[in-house]
Every structure is written in structure tokens, then in C-alpha cells.
Measured scan of single mutants.
Amino acid sequence: EPREEEAEKYIKRANGDYDKAQELAKKDGNEEIAEAIKEYKKR
């Protein structure tokens, strides 16, 4: 799923820090991806 791939990219950029990844996504205006990262975190 493209959303998950995007989320993974942010998580990698944030060195595995989900909260930081979420912030990066929000900064880029990717609210949807920020949500996907939140879902990811719950797994």
C-alpha cells in the first residue's frame, strides 16, 4: 500500500522514532501519512 510505504520512509528518516516521523509528515503537510504512522505505531 502506498500510504504504508510513505509511512515507512518517514519512520526511516526519523531513525525509527515514530513520534518524530509523525511530526516530519505533518511538517510536509501529509496529515494522512501522519495518521498512517500512528496506526503503524500501534502494531
Rank of each mutant, 00 (worst) to 15 (best):
E1V: 13
D17N: 08
N30A: 09
Y40P: 00
Q22G: 06
E23R: 07
Y10S: 00
A34F: 05
A34S: 06
K26W: 11
L24I: 05
G29V: 02
K42S: 11
K26E: 10
N15Q: 09
K26P: 01
E23Q: 10
A34I: 13
Y40T: 04
Y18D: 01
E6W: 11
E39P: 00
G16A: 02
D19C: 11
K27L: 14
E35T: 08
K20L: 15
R43D: 05
E6H: 06
K9A: 14
L24Y: 08
P2K: 14
A14T: 05
I33H: 02
K26G: 05
E31V: 12
A36R: 10
N30F: 14
A34T: 04
D28C: 04
D28M: 04
Y40F: 10
A36F: 15
K26N: 07
E23S: 07
Y18G: 01
K26H: 09
E32V: 09
N30H: 13
E1Q: 12
A21K: 00
A14I: 00
Q22I: 15
E1F: 15
E39R: 12
N15R: 08
K38M: 13
I33E: 03
Y18F: 12
N30M: 11
A7M: 13
N30C: 05
E1S: 14
L24N: 05
N15K: 09
K42E: 11
Y40C: 07
K27W: 09
E35M: 11
E5F: 12
Y10I: 02
A21C: 00
K41T: 05
A14W: 01
A25H: 01
E35G: 05
E1R: 14
E5Y: 12
N30Q: 12
G16T: 02
D19G: 06
I37W: 00
A21H: 00
P2N: 14
K38S: 08
E1D: 15
E31Q: 09
G16Q: 04
Q22F: 15
E8P: 02
K41I: 07
K42R: 13
E39T: 07
R13F: 09
D28S: 04
E32K: 11
D17E: 03
R43K: 13
D19L: 07
Y18P: 03
K20W: 10
K27C: 07
Q22L: 15
E35L: 11
G29C: 00
K41N: 04
E6C: 08
A25Y: 01
A25N: 01
N30W: 07
D19N: 08
E5A: 13
I37S: 01
E5Q: 12
D28Y: 05
A34Q: 05
E4F: 15
E8F: 14
E32S: 11
A36L: 15
Y40A: 06
E31N: 12
K12F: 10
K38I: 10
K20G: 04
I33Q: 03
I37Q: 01
E4N: 15
N30K: 15
I11P: 01
E5M: 12
K12E: 09
D28W: 03
D19A: 07
A34D: 02
K9L: 09
E39Q: 11
I11Q: 01
E8Q: 12
E4K: 10
I33F: 03
Y10R: 00
E23W: 12
K26M: 15
R3H: 13
G16L: 03
Y10Q: 00
R13M: 14
E5K: 14
A14R: 00
K42T: 09
R3C: 10
G16N: 05
I11F: 04
K9E: 12
A25L: 01
E4Q: 12
E31D: 13
D17F: 02
R3L: 15
N15M: 08
D19Y: 06
E32W: 12
